[in-house]
């Protein structure tokens, strides 16, 4: 099985980091994978996106043109990539930052106010990881088991204090119940 994931939002939201977490999780699970960032004259506040491919076979193109899973953290990204998702795919929307609903009827749409949850819990920079918690709850392309090791491999030694907070964020997303 091959899963193509596209994560998109503003620079500074941890888009690339979220992709790195998925890539590391995949590697720890013994999958083939690729991680490809958008690169360019981007900066905080600009657009950022990241392609991750996880597969049981060697990965062909690392460029995700038609994602199975789209994770969006701002409106321009939903506008840009909604139509690219494969029929039957899943779109995860940070509903704090994106007010509109997904237009397509042939995809599964999941809304979570990740940024609001992050702000209310004193971890305003970790909405990305809350979203990933939700992604792991709703899909099976990576397992929720073993998130500790995966977080450890992406949180650098310099930021060791963020290890617990990242885990907390993932767990909050995973356990989130719609009110």
């Amino acid at each position: 099985m091959t899963t193509q994931i596209l994560i998109a939002g503003f620079g500074g939201q941890g888009i690339l980091f979220a992709g790195k977490f998925l890539a590391n999780k995949g590697m720890l699970e013994g999958r083939y994978l690729s991680w490809l960032p958008s690169y360019g004259p981007e900066m905080r506040g600009g657009t950022a996106n990241c392609s991750v491919v996880l597969s049981d076979d060697p990965v062909g193109s690392p460029i995700v043109n038609h994602p199975d899973v789209l994770i969006v953290m701002n409106l321009p990204s939903l506008d840009k990539y909604e139509d690219a998702v494969v029929p039957g795919g899943t779109i995860f929307v940070d509903s704090t930052l994106i007010e509109r609903k997904v237009n397509r009827q042939d995809v599964k749409s999941i809304y979570i106010p990740a940024t609001k949850i992050a702000q209310q819990n004193g971890i305003p920079t970790l909405a990305n990881m809350i979203l990933l918690g939700k992604v792991m709850k709703e899909t099976e392309f990576v397992s929720y088991q073993g998130i500790e090791e995966a977080v450890r491999s992406v949180v650098s030694a310099k930021h060791a204090d963020l290890y617990e907070l990242n885990l907390k964020a993932i767990r909050m997303g995973y356990e989130y119940q719609e009110q």
Binding site: Y32, S34, W35, L36, P37, P62, I63
Partner: peptide, 8 residues
């Protein structure tokens, strides 16, 4: 692309 991408 090959320069910027990550793979195991």
């Amino acid at each position: 692309t090959i320069g910027q991408m990550m793979e195991p």
